[in-house]
């Protein structure tokens, strides 16, 4: 991912070749990000396309203080969140379960998984998650968002965010266990 300053300047000037180069460089990892937020590849490519339009329209506001990849990823994630919010995929009035945070931490720390899981299978499991669980899980695990930030981004309460994360983890753990058992039976 070597994108020099000149290419960024050319992108700001609207030169298509530079935009193409930027797209070719960053689209594969960013499509990986989009795939985690969507149910299928088509939806992910739609988000990628619209997000890259935003990237090209707002690239003048990239001040070069951080990495360009990080800035693009933030745009992609924000667009994915907006996209999901627009589609009302988040259950905003989730019933708040009485879950203590220690339980969440305990669940994460007490379960161990072997290394040999197929990444494609794990991605499929994430895509099968209910939209609310999936978004919170992605933001927390992959983007390092805290519950407060997730709550602000999705317009939900912090407790809802914690609940969704807990349920996402439990759902994923069960699915992994199921898969492991099926594999052992074979």
């Amino acid at each position: 991912m070597v994108i020099d300053e000149q290419i960024v300047k050319d992108c700001i000037a609207g030169k298509r070749q530079a935009q193409r180069l930027l797209f070719d460089t960053f689209a594969p990892p960013m499509l990986g990000v989009c795939m985690r937020y969507c149910r299928d590849r088509d939806e992910a490519e739609d988000i990628l396309q619209e997000a890259f339009i935003k990237v090209f329209q707002n690239i003048h506001s990239f001040r070069g203080e951080g990495s360009l990849a990080g800035w693009i990823k933030r745009v992609i994630v924000n667009h994915a969140i907006n996209y999901i919010n627009k589609r009302n995929k988040i259950a905003r009035h989730e019933k708040i379960d009485e879950i203590r945070e220690t339980e969440i931490l305990d669940m994460n720390e007490n379960v161990e998984f072997p290394d040999e899981y197929n990444p494609a299978l794990l991605l499929k499991l994430i895509q099968e998650l209910p939209a609310g669980y999936r978004t919170v899980f992605n933001l927390h695990i992959f983007e390092d968002y805290g519950h407060k930030e997730i709550a602000e981004a999705l317009g939900i309460s912090e407790n809802t965010s914690k609940t969704q994360l807990f349920k996402a983890r439990r759902w994923l753990k069960n699915k992994i266990e199921e898969n492991r058992q099926k594999k052992n039976l074979k």
Binding site: M35, A44, M107, N108, I126, I141
Partner: peptide, 17 residues
């Protein structure tokens, strides 16, 4: 082994398509 978060983070955190 790995915990659940690490498993996902390391397996598909840098996946490219």
């Amino acid at each position: 082994g790995k915990n659940l978060d690490d498993l996902f983070r390391e397996s598909i955190g840098k996946q490219e398509f």
